[in-house]
Design a protein around this nucleic acid. Structure first.
Length: 878
RNA sequence: AGGCACGUAGCUCAGUGGGAGAGCGCUUGCUUGACACGCAAGAGGUCGGCGGUUCAAAACCGCCCGUGCCUACCA
C-alpha cells in the first residue's frame, strides 16, 4: 500500500467522515427498535452562541457516552437543539438595530419579533455547525428549538395546568430589575460583585444612620431599630420629624429583628420600594411603598428636584446637598457586594412591580424525594448536598420578563368586565361579556421552556413513540453552574407532567478555566478558541484533551501545551498504524492459528484485555480521564514502546514464517481493537485508520457501527505478563547502565546474567528478543561468575553484568552503584523499622506482614550484592 | 456571615488505609528498519502546617494558614 505520510493531517479526514456518517443515518434513532434505549438530551446552547470550550467539553463528553453506547448495541438518541435565550437574543438584535440607527420601540413589537426570527434563520445555525465540526453524533433530523410550535404548545400546556392547579399566581413584589434590559430577572440571574463604595452616616433628627444608597432616602417611609436595642427603645413607636434635602419629613420609628444592632449605628432607614429587605420589613409593618426610581434607573417625579437624574448622579447630588445642610456626620470607605445583571453587568435596581410567579414548594418536594430515594443519581455525589440545600430553601420563581422575544404569557385581560382568561388557544373575545381582550405583554423566563426540554423535545404533550421509548432519558451531562437554573427545574417539571424523573443520572462536569484558574471570557482576553484549536491540532486532539482532563474536580485548567501533547498522541497512533500497514506483505489472517503465540503476543493480548476492562469501568463511572488515560498508556507505552519493537524481530529477522504471520495478525488485531476502544474519544482518526485495515467479510462498513471491544476471558495471561515484565526489567537495567555510563546506544556490548532456574527458562526462550531490545549479546548462565571489568545491576534478585572491557569507567560505575546502594539501603531501613515493631507483627493482616518480610529479604540481598560490587570496583580503582 | 471544595514534582493535575504517580517542562545521549509531533536514560517531592485516630495516614478526624466557588434580606 502507499505510505500515507508520517504526519497525520486531520483536515484531510474530519469533514469527509462526518459527512459519511451523517448521510448514512448512523446518528438517527428509531423509536420502535428492539434494542435497549439510551437517550441524552443536549443542554441546548443559546441560539446566539458560538462554540466556546465549555460547550466543547460538555458536548464531547456526551458524544463519548453516546458513541460508546451505540457501539455497545443500544438504541441511542442524542436529542439536539437550541434555546431561544430571551434576553441574550433580544440584546443581539437590539444592538444590530442600534447600529442601523433605530430601536425596537420604533419597530414595534410584531416587527421586532419578526426581525429576531429572521436573524435566527440567518445566523442561528452557527453553534449547530460548530457542534458538527466537533464530531457530535446528534440525531440532527430531530433538532428542536424552544420556540418551535410544538415546544411552544408544551409551554402553554404547562402554564395553563399550573395555573389551574393554583401553582401560578400574579402579584406585586419586589424583584431584581435590570434598568438596561428593562426587565425583571430572577434571583438566580443576579450576580454579585465586590465593589468599593462609601458608607454615609446621615443625621435623621436625633438619630444617625448609615447607608450606601443615600438616593433612596427620598423613598424612606420609616426608620427601624432592633426591638432589644436599649439605646433606641424610647423612640420606637414615635414619629420623628426630620430635616432632609426635600424639607421636613415625618418618619415612624419601628422595631424589627431584621436590624443588626451591631452594624453602623444600629438604625436603618426603611425604603420598601428599593430594597428587598426593606420591602419585607414594610410588609410586616404595613408601610407605604414609595417608589422614587423608575424602571429606567432614573429618579422619578416623586424625587422632586432630583427627578430625571440617573440614580448614581442623584446620589452625588444628594450627598453634597446633605453636606451643605450639615446632615452628613461622616463618610467611610466601604467594600460590599453589589448585584448586577448576569447578561449585561448593569447594577440591578430592586423594584416593586407586578409579576408572575410559580409556587415552587409543591414542585420541589417530589424533586427532593426523587434524588433522596435514588431515582436520580447525581455524579459526583458531592453535588447532591448542594442540590438539597437549594431545593429545601427554594423560593417562588419569578417567571415573567418584560421583553418581547419569548413565549408570551397566555393570559388575556378583559377591560370591560375585568376578568382574566388563561387559555391554551388564543381567545377571540371575552367569554363572559364578549368584550375585547388584551393579551398579557410579558413573556416567560427562558428557563421556563428549558425546564420542559427532556419531554417537550420528544413531542409532549402529544403521546409519541419517542416519548414512550426514550423518556426518562438515561443521563444529563452539564456544568454545575446551571444546577439550579436548569437541572432542578427539569426535575420538578418532569415529575409533575410526566410522572417520572427526566433522567436517571446527572453527570456534573467541571468548568473550563484558563491557566490562572480564571473563567475564560472575551473581556479578559484569556479565551482559547476551540475552533482555532481544532484548526491547529485537530478535533480529535481537542476531544481527547477534554476527556483526559475531565477529572471530577471543580475546574479544568487548559493550556495549549496539553492539547499539543495529545495532538502528538494522535500522531503516534498514526505512525503506529503506518508501521502495521507497511508490514503486512503476505498477510493472511485466516492462515495463522493461535497455537504458537510468542511471549510478546500473549503479553500484548493480556494487556489489551486489561485495558478494555479499565476503559469500560471508567466510562461506566463517568471517569472519562481514567478511560482516556488507560488507552493512552496502553497504546503508547505498551503497544508502541514494547510490542511494536518486539514485532520487528519476527518481521525482519526471524526465519519462521508462522511466527511472522502470527505477529502480523496480532499487530493488526491489537491495533483494530484499540481503534474501536478509542473511537468514542477520537472518532475521526480511528475511522480513517480503521478503513485502511484489512478486514473480513462480515466487518461493518464503519467503525462507528462496529461493536465496542469485549474482553475475551482467555486473553488474560498473568504468566505471560510476569515473564514479559522480567524481560523488560533486564532490558531496562542494561539500558540504564548504557545511559548512566554514557555508552552510545549502537555500541555492541555483552552481558551475562545469573538467573534462577525459572528465570533462566524465560530468558533463554526469549534471548534474541532481549538481545535485540537491549542491543547486546547475552549469555544466560545460572553458574556465572562475575566477569572482570563489568557493571552490575540487580533485576528481580538476578545479577546482570554488562561487560565493559575497554570502555569501563570505574569512577562512573562506582557512582552508579553508590546511588543504587543508597536507594536500597534507605528502603531496607524503612522496612526493617516497620518489621521491628511488635504491634505491626501482631495487628497487621498476615499477608501484609508476609509481603514486608519478603521485601526485606530481597532488599538484604540487593544491599549485599550492590555492596560487594561496589567494593570490588573500588578495589580495582585503587 | 454561613456552606462547599481545593492545597501532592518547576507547571497542570491523577491518586478514598499498607512499597509517592502522569502529562508538559528540565538534564544527558541518540538521523535505532513507523513516528524529532520521535527514541533511550535521568534529575526533581518535609504530599500546606500542627495535633489526633490507627500496628500503619498523602488519604480518616480536629484546629490553623492559604486559594477558589456557592448561598444569604448586614443597610
Amino acid at each position: 500500500m502507499t505510505d500515507p505520510g508520517d504526519r497525520y493531517d486531520p483536515r484531510q479526514v474530519e469533514e469527509r467522515w462526518y459527512r459519511v456518517w451523517e448521510s448514512r443515518g448512523y446518528f438517527h434513532a428509531v423509536p420502535g427498535s428492539p434494542k435497549k434505549p439510551y437517550a441524552i438530551v443536549i443542554p441546548p446552547p443559546n441560539v446566539t452562541a458560538s462554540l466556546h470550550l465549555g460547550h466543547a467539553l460538555n458536548n464531547v463528553l456526551q458524544d463519548v457516552l453516546v458513541r460508546w453506547k451505540r457501539m455497545e448495541g443500544w438504541n441511542v438518541l442524542w436529542q439536539p437543539g437550541t434555546d431561544h435565550a430571551g434576553i441574550a437574543t433580544q440584546n443581539v438584535v437590539e444592538r444590530q438595530l442600534a447600529a442601523e440607527g433605530t430601536t425596537k420601540a420604533a419597530l414595534g413589537r410584531e416587527a421586532f419579533v419578526e426581525r429576531v426570527w429572521r436573524w435566527r434563520e440567518e445566523s442561528g445555525g452557527t453553534i449547530i455547525r460548530q457542534l458538527k465540526r466537533l464530531g457530535c453524533s446528534c440525531d440532527w433530523t430531530r433538532e428542536r428549538f424552544t420556540m418551535d410550535p410544538g415546544l411552544s404548545a408544551a409551554v402553554r400546556e404547562v402554564f395553563v395546568r399550573l395555573w389551574e392547579e393554583g401553582l401560578i399566581y400574579q402579584g406585586d413584589y419586589i424583584v431584581n430589575w435590570c434598568p438596561r434590559c428593562q426587565t425583571a430577572i430572577s434571583d438566580l440571574e443576579v450576580e454579585y460583585e465586590e465593589r468599593d463604595a462609601h458608607l454615609y452616616y446621615i443625621k435623621y433628627g436625633p438619630l444617625t444612620l448609615a447607608t450606601v444608597r443615600p438616593e433612596t432616602k427620598l423613598g424612606d417611609t420609616a426608620l427601624a431599630v432592633h426591638p432589644r436595642d436599649k439605646r433606641y427603645a424610647k423612640y420606637v413607636g414615635q414619629t420623628l420629624t426630620v430635616r432632609s434635602v426635600d424639607g421636613e419629613i415625618a418618619l415612624k420609628v419601628i422595631a424589627d429583628t431584621a436590624v443588626d444592632p451591631k452594624f453602623g449605628t444600629g438604625v436603618v432607614k426603611v425604603t420598601p420600594a428599593h430594597d428587598a429587605a426593606d420591602f419585607e420589613i414594610g410588609r410586616r409593618h404595613g408601610l407605604e411603598v414609595r417608589q422614587v426610581i423608575g424602571g429606567d434607573g432614573k429618579m422619578n417625579a416623586l424625587a422632586g428636584k432630583y427627578a430625571g437624574l440617573d440614580r448614581f448622579e442623584a446620589r452625588q447630588r444628594i450627598v453634597s446637598d446633605l453636606e451643605t445642610l450639615g446632615l452628613i456626620e461622616r463618610i467611610e470607605p466601604y467594600r460590599h457586594r453589589i448585584g448586577v445583571c448576569y447578561r449585561c453587568w448593569t447594577v440591578v435596581e430592586p423594584l416593586v412591580s407586578t409579576q408572575w410567579y410559580v409556587r415552587t414548594r409543591p414542585l420541589a418536594e417530589p424533586a427532593i424525594k426523587a434524588v433522596r430515594e435514588g431515582k436520580i443519581r447525581i455524579v459526583p455525589r458531592g453535588w447532591t448536598r448542594t442540590y438539597f440545600s437549594w431545593m429545601e430553601g427554594i423560593r417562588d420563581w419569578c417567571i415573567s420578563r418584560q421583553i418581547w422575544w419569548g413565549h408570551r404569557i397566555p393570559v388575556w385581560h378583559c377591560d370591560a368586565c375585568g376578568i382574566l382568561i388563561v387559555s391554551r388557544e388564543d381567545p377571540a373575545q371575552c367569554d363572559q361579556c364578549g368584550g375585547p381582550l388584551r393579551q398579557e405583554t410579558d413573556v416567560l423566563d427562558t428557563w421556563f421552556s428549558s425546564a420542559l426540554w427532556p419531554f417537550s423535545t420528544l413531542g409532549w404533550p402529544e403521546d409519541t413513540p419517542e416519548l414512550r421509548t426514550f423518556y426518562p432519558t438515561a443521563c444529563l451531562v452539564t456544568g454545575f453552574d446551571i444546577l439550579f437554573f436548569w437541572v432542578a427545574r427539569m426535575i420538578m417539571m418532569g415529575l409533575r407532567f410526566m410522572g417520572d424523573v427526566p433522567f436517571r443520572d446527572v453527570y456534573i462536569h467541571a468548568l473550563v478555566r484558563d491557566m490562572e484558574g480564571k473563567k475564560m471570557s472575551k473581556s479578559r482576553g484569556n479565551v482559547i478558541d476551540p475552533l482555532e484549536v481544532m484548526d491547529r491540532f485537530g478535533t480529535d486532539a481537542l476531544r481527547f484533551t477534554l476527556a483526559a482532563l475531565a477529572a471530577q474536580g471543580r475546574d479544568i485548567r487548559l493550556s495549549e501545551e496539553r492539547i499539543e501533547g495529545y495532538r502528538n498522541f494522535a500522531n503516534k497512533l498514526w505512525n503506529a498504524a503506518r508501521f502495521v500497514l507497511t508490514n503486512l506483505d503476505g498477510y493472511a489472517p485466516a492462515g495463522a492459528k493461535d497455537v504458537a503465540l510468542s511471549l510478546p503476543d500473549r503479553w500484548i493480548r493480556s494487556r489489551l484485555a486489561r485495558t478494555v476492562t479499565a476503559v469500560k469501568k471508567g466510562l461506566q463511572a463517568y471517569r472519562f480521564n481514567d478511560a482516556a488515560g488507560a488507552i493512552y498508556q496502553f497504546l503508547w507505552h505498551e503497544f508502541c514502546d514494547w510490542y511494536v519493537e518486539c514485532s520487528k524481530l519476527a518481521l525482519y529477522r526471524g526465519e519462521d514464517p508462522l511466527a511472522r504471520a502470527l505477529t502480523q495478525k496480532v499487530l493488526v488485531e491489537t491495533l483494530e481493537v484499540t481503534l474501536r476502544l478509542l473511537h468514542p474519544f477520537m472518532p475521526f482518526i480511528t475511522e480513517e485508520i480503521w478503513q485502511r485495515l484489512p478486514k473480513g467479510k462480515k466487518s461493518p462498513e464503519s467503525i462507528m457501527i462496529a461493536d465496542f471491544p469485549r474482553v475475551p476471558r482467555a486473553a488474560r495471561d498473568p504468566g505471560a505478563e510476569a515473564e514479559m515484565e522480567l524481560l523488560m526489567a533486564v532490558v531496562g537495567a542494561i539500558r540504564n547502565i548504557r545511559g548512566e555510563m554514557g555508552i552510545p546506544p549502537l555500541r555492541p556490548l555483552t552481558a551475562v546474567v545469573r538467573p534462577t532456574e525459572t528465570q533462566a527458562a524465560a530468558l533463554r526462550a526469549n534471548q534474541p528478543l532481549v538481545e535485540a531490545l537491549a542491543r547486546i549479546r547475552l549469555s544466560v548462565d545460572p553458574g556465572a561468575r562475575r566477569p572482570h571489568s563489568s557493571a552490575m545491576a540487580l533485576v528481580a534478585g538476578m545479577e546482570c553484568f554488562v561487560l565493559l572491557e575497554g570502555v569501563v569507567d570505574l569512577a562512573a560505575e562506582a557512582r552508579r552503584l553508590t546511588k543504587e546502594l543508597g536507594k536500597a539501603e534507605e528502603a531496607l531501613r524503612f522496612v526493617e523499622e516497620k518489621l521491628s515493631r511488635q504491634e505491626f507483627r501482631a495487628r497487621a493482616p498476615a499477608e501484609v506482614v508476609e509481603r514486608e518480610i519478603e521485601r526485606r529479604d530481597e532488599l538484604i540481598q540487593t544491599v549485599r550484592r550492590l555492596g560487594e560490587s561496589l567494593e570490588r570496583v573500588r578495589a580495582t580503582q585503587n
